[in-house]
Computed example of a mutant assay.
Amino acid sequence: MDIRIDPLTGPAIAALLQEHLDDMALHSPPESVHALDLERLRRPGITFWTAWEDGALLGCAALRALDAEHAELKSMRTARAHLRRGVAAALLRHVMEEARRRGFRRLSLETGSPAAFLPARALYTRFGFVLCGPFGNYGPDPYSVFMTRAL
C-alpha cells in the first residue's frame, strides 16, 4: 500500500469524496454533516493523503491543524471495494505518525453517532481515542461523537 499526499485533482478522489459526502447525508441532517468537500480540503492547514495499490484508490484521510499543539483527523474514508482490508488502520497510523512528527500533542476527531458509524468508532477506540466534548468550532450535536487522544 502506497500512502501519499494527494493534490485533490484526480477524478478517483473526487468520486470517493462525493461518496463520503453522500453517505454522511444518508445518516445525518445537513446541519450535522461536518465532512469537507474538495474545496475546503484544499485550504491551508490541511494535509490530505490517499492510499493506493496497483493503481486503485483504497482510501483517504486528512489532518487539519487546529493550533500549534492540537490537530483534527478529517475525511477518513475507505473505498467500498476495499473495506475490511486494513486500509483505515494504515491511514490512521500514517496520520498519527505525521501528527507526532509535526509536533502536535493531541489529535481529535468528530464522527457520527448513528449505528452506521459504529465500525469507525470501534477503529478509533482501538487506536486509543476516547470520548470528549466538542472542540474547535464544533458545538454539541446529537448526531456527532467527539473523540481525542494524546500523542
Results as ranks from 00 to 15, higher is better:
A122R: 14
E69S: 14
H34V: 06
P29T: 00
R77L: 01
R106S: 13
R102K: 11
P7M: 13
V145D: 02
L66W: 07
M76Y: 00
R106G: 06
I3V: 08
N137S: 15
F129S: 09
P7T: 10
L63H: 10
P142G: 12
V87N: 06
R77T: 09
R105C: 08
R43V: 03
H34K: 02
A61V: 12
P11T: 07
A71W: 07
T9D: 12
E53H: 14
L109Q: 07
Q18M: 05
F104G: 09
E53D: 15
R121E: 10
L8K: 10
H34A: 06
D2A: 15
A14F: 04
E97L: 14
G112P: 04
A51D: 07
P29W: 02
V33G: 01
L41A: 01
M1I: 08
G45S: 05
F146L: 08
A62M: 03
M1L: 12
R42V: 04
G136N: 08
G139D: 14
V87D: 01
P140I: 11
L109F: 08
G103A: 05
D6Q: 02
I5S: 15
F117L: 08
R4M: 10
R43Y: 07
I46F: 04
P114L: 08
R77E: 01
S144V: 02
T125E: 13
T148V: 03
E98W: 08
G133H: 01
R43N: 03
E53K: 15
M24V: 01
L123A: 10
L118E: 15
G136V: 11
A79T: 02
P30G: 00
E69C: 11
R4D: 08
L73D: 07
T125V: 02
H82C: 05
L123F: 07
L17S: 04
G10C: 13
S108K: 00
F146K: 01
A115P: 05
E97A: 15
C60M: 09
E72D: 08
Y143L: 00
H70G: 06
F135D: 14
Y143E: 00
E72K: 00
L91G: 11
L8V: 06
G45N: 01
G133I: 08
G133K: 10
A56Q: 15
L131N: 13
Y124R: 00
